[in-house]
Write a protein that binds this DNA or RNA. Structure first.
Lengths: 224, 224
DNA sequence: TTTTGACTCCATCATTTGATTGAATACCTA
DNA sequence: TAGGTATTCAATCAAATGATGGAGTCAAAA
C-alpha cells in the first residue's frame, strides 16, 4: 500500500513527481502565499487543472511537499549519524557539518521550507509538521547531550536547534549573503563550513568535561 | 525636512503611525504575500482606502515597514555598542546577548522581518534593504574581528551573521520552538540566552588571538 | 461665516487566484 | 479492435485582492 507521495518518488518522470518537485522549489522560494498554483503549473508546463487532478488543492500539495522534505531530511540525518557513529565528538561535528552542508546546498529548498515553517505563519493553517522534536532528540542523543532520545532536556534541544538553525540559515540565506560577501558559490560553501565549525566546535568540544565526567568521545558538556 | 516615516514615529497616535505599527506586526507574522491590505486595515479599524491614502500602495507600505525596522535595529545596536564599549570580549558578548535578546523579544516582528527578508523572495521585488553589510561591519569592528568597519573580511562578516542569525532565529521561532519545549515565555527567554552564550562565547573568547592566521578548529579534519 | 484642506469611508473596478466542469486525448486491457 | 480508464486541457466560476474616485465630515484658517 503505497502513499501517493511514495509513488511519486518512485517514478521521478511521472507528472505527479514533476509537479511535486517544482512545487517544492517554489514553495521554498516564495513561501506558501507567495507561490500560486499557476506559477507551479506554468513552470511544469501544464494546465492548472492537471495540477489539481494530481494533488488536490493547494493545501494538499503543500502538505505533500512538507512531508516529502521531512522524509528527505530524516533520511539524510540518519545517514550522517551512521557515518560518524564511532568518531570522537570533534570529529563527529566536523564530518557532520561537511556532510550536512553539502547535502543542504544541493537541496536548498529543504532549508528554505524548514525555516519558513519556523518563522512564518500561514493564513489557513496547514497541519503537517516537520518532525523537529524527534529529529532533535535523535541528534541530541547522538551528540551525547541526552541519554534518551525520547526525553531530551529543553537545553539539549535548544543546542541542537542552534546547530540546525545555523546550518539552514546560511543555505537559505545564500541569495542574500553571498552577493553581500562577493564570493562565488564554491568559496561561499567553504566559508560557511569553516564559520560553522569555528562557532560550533569550541562550544561542544572545549567545554567537554568542564562539567562532569567526560569521555573524550562521548557525552559532551552540558548537563542540560 | 521630515520624511513621512519620521513624522509617523513622532506621533504614535496618528493614523499613519497606527497603520505602520499594525503593518509591521502583520508583515512580520505572515510575510509580504501572506498579509493583505484588508487584514491591516481591519486590524487598525479603518477602510482600505484610508490605508492607501496614507501610505500609497502595498509595496510602499512594506518598504516603509522595512525602513522603520531597520532604523530601530540600527539604533539598538548602537546602544548596545555604547553599553559594552569598555569591557572584555567575554563580558561584551554576555551583555550584548542579554540586552539584544531582551530588546528583540520585546519587538519580535523585527526578527521576523529580518529573517523573512533573508530567506524568502517576494514576487514583485521591493528594493529597500536592511543595512546588513553596514551593521555587520560595525559589529565586526566592535568585536575586534575587523580593524575597519568598512572593509571587514568575508569570514568576519560571516561570524557576525552567525551571531545575528542565532539571535533572530530563537525570537522569530518562538511560536514554533516554545510549545515544543514546553517552556513559559520567561523561561524560554532565559534558556535562549544561556544557549546562545553556550554556543557563542567559547568560539570567540577561547579562540581569541588564534584567529589571525590559522583558524584553530576549522578544516583540521575536513578536507572537503 | 465661508473656505480650504486634510482625512475617512462607501461603492466600485480590474486583476489575480484557487478551483471545477466537461470535452478531448492517450493508454491500456481483454 | 472495442471498451474502459487515466490523463490532460480549454473554458469558466466565484472569491479574494489591490487599488481608485468621489462624496461626506471636520477642524482650522481667512
Amino acid at each position: 500500500m503505497k502513499s501517493p507521495l511514495e509513488k511519486a518518488r518512485k517514478n521521478p518522470e511521472s507528472m505527479k513527481a514533476r509537479i511535486l518537485a517544482v512545487a517544492r522549489r517554489l514553495f521554498g522560494e516564495y513561501g506558501f502565499h507567495g507561490t500560486t498554483t499557476r506559477m507551479i503549473a506554468k513552470e511544469v508546463g501544464i494546465d492548472i487543472s492537471t495540477l489539481h487532478y494530481h494533488w488536490g488543492d493547494k493545501n494538499d500539495l503543500y502538505e505533500a511537499v512538507v512531508m516529502d522534505v521531512n522524509n528527505d531530511l530524516g533520511r539524510e540525518l540518519l545517514k550522517v549519524e551512521k557515518t560518524v557513529h564511532d568518531s570522537s565528538l570533534e570529529e563527529r561535528l566536523n564530518v557532520s557539518i561537511d556532510q550536512m552542508m553539502d547535502y543542504l546546498f544541493d537541496h536548498p529548498e529543504i532549508s528554505n521550507l524548514v525555516l519558513l515553517r519556523y518563522f512564518s505563519k500561514t493564513r489557513n493553517e496547514v497541519d503537517v509538521d516537520f518532525k523537529v522534536p524527534e529529529f532533535s532528540g535523535d541528534i541530541a542523543r547522538a551528540m551525547g547531550l541526552a541519554k534518551d532520545a525520547k526525553n531530551p532536556s529543553p537545553r539539549a534541544m535548544m543546542k541542537v536547534m542552534s546547530i540546525m538553525n545555523g546550518m539552514h540559515s546560511f543555505v537559505s540565506g545564500e541569495n542574500f549573503f553571498r552577493p553581500m560577501l562577493n564570493l562565488d558559490r564554491k568559496n561561499y560553501i567553504r566559508a560557511v563550513k569553516e564559520t560553522l565549525k569555528f562557532i560550533l566546535i569550541p562550544a561542544f568540544v572545549l567545554q567537554e568535561g568542564k562539567t562532569k565526567k567526560g569521555r573524550s568521545s562521548g557525552s559532551a558538556s552540558a548537563k542540560n
